[in-house]
Design a protein around this nucleic acid. Structure first.
Lengths: 306, 306
DNA sequence: GAATCCTCGTCATACGTATTACTGAATCCT
DNA sequence: AGGATTCAGTAATACGTATGACGAGGATTC
């Protein structure tokens, strides 16, 4: 029994080249001896590694964990490894420290500005500007905002305050547009960082106006928590005096009182879809840009205006 | 110029074997041509991969992201790659799907029951039972609980309710003991899942007693959020009528109203320390079990009893 | 002055696989 | 019957590195 035969059989290329009973014998022996083809030798011979890089932002919100999980599961199912690479927010487009030859492709999440300088490696972006020169798998933020707008419109709201996360120029614009389309001329916007204290301050400014909005639309659940604090400071009841909505549906949403009306994002599915797209790209196919719909979750923080 | 010489120089083993000016020439040429030793060939020759596995629980709290970040940074600095492996909570001690020969060691976080069946691979555990047969890097939960107990004792509390996370036998015992030592005979304990709704229910049971505790010690910030809800349902003011403490200091802690007194855990440092320990283990040294102290953060949810 | 040692490199080999080219036997076609 | 074709498997090779064995020339020692 020659080494070549074993290699052919175990690679599944035995069709018409190796007699079925011999195939059986090979598999049998391999199982009995616990033999597994040496990975390093195979990589050397084939010039492949079946490994992709996962670039992760340092800011570790609860959404990212879910994204990694989804991505890693798909990769494992296809026999790929996933190498982690933390990417500090302030880092420029510096190349990865991880040796690029150890990697076949890159899956990057929330890279601000859509930086894509990974040499010639195939890249798929998650949660990034779709104008970037790489396939992009995104949450459908516009659709989510439209769902929120429709919900508030149905309740009878007319004056909307928008607490906008200003970290990302692309979503800043998309979210603003979606809201402005639904409530033309009656949206006041205030930019804020994704941070409870900053959001509280921003919300106070919106609520201090003479034409106080009856609902605050927040780009993130954390921002909504800041809005809650502002409302309490002004002695405004939620949802009696003021409706508030969030975005993401992280655990915080149900921990708040009253529980937050928000949009649930399919984070794990985003990771899985993006990894699938990357593996397609490695196969030479061209994956389609995809937008994953969130789901409006109506809880107790929205009601008709006073 | 032979290939051997280049290999020797670039491996840094040129001391006394290669003349300095030749060394210079090699480095110069390598830089000019952008030459990097082929990783697959090196792995094949040396039988090493400089890659470790990071086993991550599916439940993706905000703490885990920080742990991964710390671990991956240390690994990158030492030239190691980190392969992600999600580990569903309900999975038994099944072996990793990732080919064990692709990996030199395993860093596992929060493995329930301290399962360590990764064949002969070196393992370091994070946030697990220190009785497990592997080096363990832990948060000092006992110390954190003692800090909370001291704080509450100083405020004058005598009757303590303990909302205990029941997911892990080891911490369940350690936390209970630390609290019982500080308040002998005056702690009532109620087990709960780490879940807002479950915690609310458990808190209600504690607060319904004739000898109602004046402070609720919660094993997790999320549980504390449940306690907040129970207090509101019973019309108890925090911290006027009831003091509440959490654990972890996740973002939620400052989003709640009033802001939560809790213990901040050095999650990123945990990941970094554990990775350092694993790399030591790979070097043949025996890392010391380590316990990382948290820091009591006093906010607005604790006050003297009524 | 010969024997020994040191310096600076080079040669040759092995790691374990995938694949191309090949071979011997059996079967088929006319 | 004899050449062509198919079947089933083997031999040989290349991937690129690290390293132990080897060697040539010069310096040192007694």
């Amino acid at each position: 029994m020659s080494q070549s035969t074993v290699s052919i059989v175990l690679a599944g290329k035995a069709e018409g080249r190796v007699k079925p009973e011999t195939r059986q014998a090979v598999h049998e022996a391999a199982r009995r001896l616990g033999y597994r083809p040496n990975l390093a030798a195979r990589n050397l011979r084939l010039g492949r590694t079946r490994t992709v890089l996962l670039v992760v932002p340092t800011l570790t919100g609860p959404v990212f964990g879910a994204i990694y999980t989804g991505a890693a599961e798909v990769a494992a199912a296809r026999g790929f490894g996933v190498v982690l690479h933390p990417w500090p927010d302030d880092a420029g487009p510096a190349r990865s420290q991880v040796d690029t030859q150890a990697i076949e492709g890159v899956l990057a999440s929330s890279i601000v500005g859509g930086v894509t300088d990974f040499g010639d490696l195939p890249v798929v972006l998650m949660d990034s500007d779709p104008a970037a020169p790489a396939p992009t798998i995104n949450f459908d933020v516009a659709g989510g905002m439209r769902a929120i707008a429709a919900h508030l419109a149905e309740l009878g709201h007319r004056r909307i305050g928008h607490l906008a996360a200003s970290v990302d120029a692309w979503t800043f614009r998309v979210r603003g547009d979606a809201l402005a389309d639904a409530f033309p001329g009656s949206v006041v916007r205030q930019a804020t960082a994704i941070d409870v204290a900053a959001a509280r301050q921003a919300a106070l400014e919106l609520l201090d106006r003479s034409d106080r909005p009856s609902a605050l639309v927040c780009d993130d659940d954390l921002i909504a928590a800041g809005a809650y604090k502002a409302a309490r400071a002004l002695n405004l009841g939620i949802p009696g005096d003021l409706s508030v909505t969030g975005f993401d549906d992280v655990l915080l949403a149900t921990a708040l009182e009253p529980e937050l009306t928000t949009v649930r994002l399919p984070a794990e599915q985003l990771g899985a879809t993006a990894m699938t797209a990357l593996l397609e790209l490695l196969d030479g196919r061209r994956p389609a840009d995809t937008s994953l719909a969130g789901q409006l979750v109506v809880r107790a923080s929205t009601a008709p205006p006073p």
